Amino acid sequence: MNLTPKQRIELHGFNNLTKSLSFNMYDICYTKTAQEREAYINYIDEQYNADRLTKILSTVTEIIGAHILNIAQQDYEPQGASVTILVSEGPVDQASMGEALEESPGPIPTAVVAQLDKSHITVHTYPEYHPDDGISTFRADIDVSTCGEISPLKALNYLIHSFDTDIMTIDYRVRGFTRDITGHKLFIDHEISSIQNYIPDEIQDMYDMIDVNVYQENIFHTKCKLRQFDLDNYLFGYTKERLDQEERNSITKKLKIEMDEIFYGKNVTNGFLYREDD
């Protein structure tokens, strides 16, 4: 069903569907020494501190058309940050609702308004490093949960542009049900075939993508791994010109294994991917 402003379903009471978007991103870096590792962690903590994350989530709130009720934010020691925003119903722009229901990338950002209630947006960051292999990673987990007519997938385009991302894992689920005026249950109120349809073409061209969707359960999953690899983008504070070819090859192998393990959710040994329970 392709819903437009003229074809909107008339509901009995409020739209009780809960739509949840989980956006997980990973940034990977090679930090050879303890000093490089500390500098990288400090850079991440400064770049993605609680204040900046609050600004990002506040913009997400604008995109989905909500009002902020409360903000809780915290920077942690030795590293990491968290922000939680409770949001409430925003004004409804009838002319924009058809666009809000279409399967297309959202704004970066613009004035989008929609009807929301009992909703929240959260982010948690996880900088970490391998104890002796020179690999450092930064992970950010963002959850956008809304009740109402708009899908939080409209915030995905902005979130992708807000982080430097090597790996993305995106999950979307519609839960519960609402009723039309005849009492008929609706378990989803918009068409969706893939999360990829909410990602702009220029971003899709940059990533290898895998979909795992359970349509009968309204569960959608997409994983993305950056296609182009330039070693200079993964060295912290210097370029590959300082390395001999053997070092370049060794570091490149470590970084690509790290990316593959995160992307496929498996560990690598002797050149083969395997699960811990295999």
Rank of each mutant, 00 (worst) to 15 (best):
L17T: 00
Q79V: 06
A114V: 03
T239F: 07
T137C: 12
Y158T: 00
V214C: 11
H12I: 03
G176T: 00
A114C: 05
Y238I: 05
N249R: 13
Y40F: 14
L226T: 04
F220S: 05
D132W: 15
G134P: 04
S104T: 10
K254W: 03
E202A: 04
D132E: 08
D75I: 02
R175Y: 03
Q73N: 09
H184I: 12
D208I: 12
G13K: 06
F177S: 15
F177K: 10
V113N: 11
K154A: 08
L186Q: 02
K240T: 13
I199F: 00
F23Y: 07
F23T: 01
Y48T: 00
L153V: 01
N267R: 09
N16Q: 14
E202I: 08
D51I: 07
A114Y: 07
L11F: 09
I64F: 03
I63A: 00
K254D: 08
F272M: 15
R248V: 10
I142F: 04
M259Y: 03
I9V: 14
M259N: 02
K32R: 15
I44K: 09
P105W: 02
S162T: 01
Y238D: 01
A72V: 15
Y48H: 01
Q228P: 05
I219H: 08
N267A: 12
S145C: 13
D27S: 10
S104M: 15
P152L: 06
T252Q: 13
F236M: 06
I142V: 15
Y129C: 14
A39L: 04
E89K: 13
L3V: 14
Q79R: 13
E103L: 09
Y274P: 05
S250W: 09
I150R: 13
K154Q: 07
P152N: 11
H184P: 01
M206V: 11
Q35P: 00
D143V: 12
R139W: 05
D75A: 08
V123G: 08
I41H: 07
T182M: 05
E62S: 11
N197G: 07
I121L: 11
L86T: 03
Y43N: 07
F220L: 02
K55E: 15
R179G: 02
L156C: 09
M25D: 05
E62D: 11
T182F: 14
R179F: 10
Y158P: 00
T33A: 01
L11V: 07
T125D: 02
N70Q: 11
D75E: 09
T84V: 11
C147I: 07
E38P: 03
K55G: 13
G13Y: 01
D166W: 04
M25G: 06
K223V: 08
M206G: 06
L243C: 10
G237C: 09
D133W: 13
P78L: 00
G148V: 01
Y48S: 01
S96W: 10
E128M: 06
N213F: 08
P5Y: 01
D201F: 15
I85K: 00
S104P: 08
P5A: 06
S151N: 11
L159A: 00
R179M: 13
D132R: 10
T178N: 03
H161E: 05
L159D: 01
P107K: 10
P91Y: 04
A81V: 01
N2D: 08
G80D: 06
K254A: 12
L86K: 07
Q7S: 12
I64A: 03
I167W: 00
K240G: 05
